[in-house]
Amino acid sequence: MAVRNNPTGRQLRLGAELRKLRERAGLTSTAASQLLGMKQAQVSNMETGRVGVSAERVRTLACHYACSDKALVEAIADMTGDRRRGWWEEYREILPTGLLDLAEVEHHATRLCTAITVHIPGLLQIPDHARELIHQVVPEFPPPDVEHRVSFRIKRQAVLFRDPPTPYLAIVHEAALRMQFGGPDVTKRQLRHLLDMGERDHITVKVIPFAAGSFPGSGQSLFYSSGQVPQLDTVHLDQSHGPTFLDAEAQLEMYRVLLDRWEAIALDVTRSRDLIHNVIRDL
């Protein structure tokens, strides 16, 4: 089988999950290759996403690795399917790989959640708001690159409109509502769009008011993508140098706790909508 030079984020994650199964079984890659009757390089290539793996091969590996978690095994097996090129591939030579990986994660997620303090979540941004944010990146992007990034961000929002749409929870701090990116007119249109999207049954928008004071993780923004089983969840942190993806069990648990605390101090949906209306009136 041909070896991939540039596996996608999902292919890398599949390989990483196979490595975790092996390591939980207490096997080295050499011992696993002997047990499976294959070369050690084949095991290594599977675990680095450099070669494709069939669903049946995943089940065979899980059997040899004595994994009894059937839900996890089937969820990993499902990751081998749907090998069609996603829409994000048209940006492969244009945008950083991390952004394409983010679109791929969103596409396959069973639920999405964003917790953010100074920006409107990307999945709920209007083009003018997104354009203003992207213009502020240092070093500054040339105009064509700005437009590529704007169009890419808007296309990512398709997960909220497909059938069935992906459930989405957006926890936004009041500071993000009052940041006038693009001026008052753009801000008003952005906040009205936020209200409109929040009326959809699968989208929940909650606001943390200034009055809530300090709270854990207030200095960061995070994106949480749920997989078919909790072990396949992913955390995306938006860094100035590019996106970072986390999937270690301890990391996932920490960010689940943070999200629970953010949601606990946020206003309920009705009071969140009232606050957004108040901000619009203040502009």
Rank of each mutant, 00 (worst) to 15 (best):
L133M: 15
V53N: 04
V257I: 14
G52E: 14
Q40F: 02
V186G: 09
F152L: 13
Q40M: 09
G198D: 04
D233C: 09
L160F: 07
L169H: 06
V269F: 02
A77C: 13
W262D: 09
L100E: 01
A71G: 02
A175R: 00
G219Y: 03
Q42D: 14
A158Q: 15
P243Y: 01
L191S: 11
Q231S: 13
H64R: 03
H202Q: 12
L195M: 12
R162G: 05
R281T: 10
L21E: 06
L112H: 08
L191Q: 13
S272L: 01
L124F: 07
V172I: 15
Q220S: 15
A77G: 13
D274G: 11
C67G: 02
L21N: 05
A25F: 04
G122K: 05
L237G: 00
H202K: 06
L18R: 03
V269D: 12
P184S: 12
A248N: 05
R85Q: 12
H119I: 11
R22C: 05
L100N: 02
R281S: 15
F161Q: 14
E104I: 06
G227T: 09
Y255D: 01
R111I: 00
A170W: 04
V159C: 11
L267T: 02
R271F: 10
E56G: 12
I203W: 03
L99K: 08
P139A: 09
C67W: 01
P216T: 11
L252V: 05
Q251G: 05
D282M: 14
A62S: 10
L194D: 14
L124V: 12
Q251A: 08
V205C: 06
H129P: 01
D185N: 05
D247L: 01
E104K: 11
Y224Q: 00
D201S: 11
R273D: 04
L99C: 08
E17T: 07
S221E: 10
T117R: 03
D69Q: 03
V118Q: 06
H277I: 07
Y65V: 06
T8N: 08
S226D: 05
A266R: 03
I120S: 01
I94Q: 14
Q220G: 15
V207K: 01
T30A: 15
L160P: 07
A31P: 02
R57S: 07
G198C: 09
I94Y: 06
V186N: 09
A250Q: 15
L246C: 04
P243D: 13
K188L: 12
R50P: 08
V150W: 11
G49F: 07
R131D: 05
C113T: 15
Y65L: 06
L112M: 15
A266C: 10
D69V: 03
R200M: 12
E17K: 10
T204C: 09
A212V: 05
L258G: 06
A32T: 00
L169Q: 04
I208P: 00
R85K: 14
V105C: 12
S240R: 14
D282G: 13
S33W: 04
A66D: 13
A66R: 13
L14Q: 03
R57P: 01
V186Y: 10
R162D: 07
D69E: 11
A31H: 10
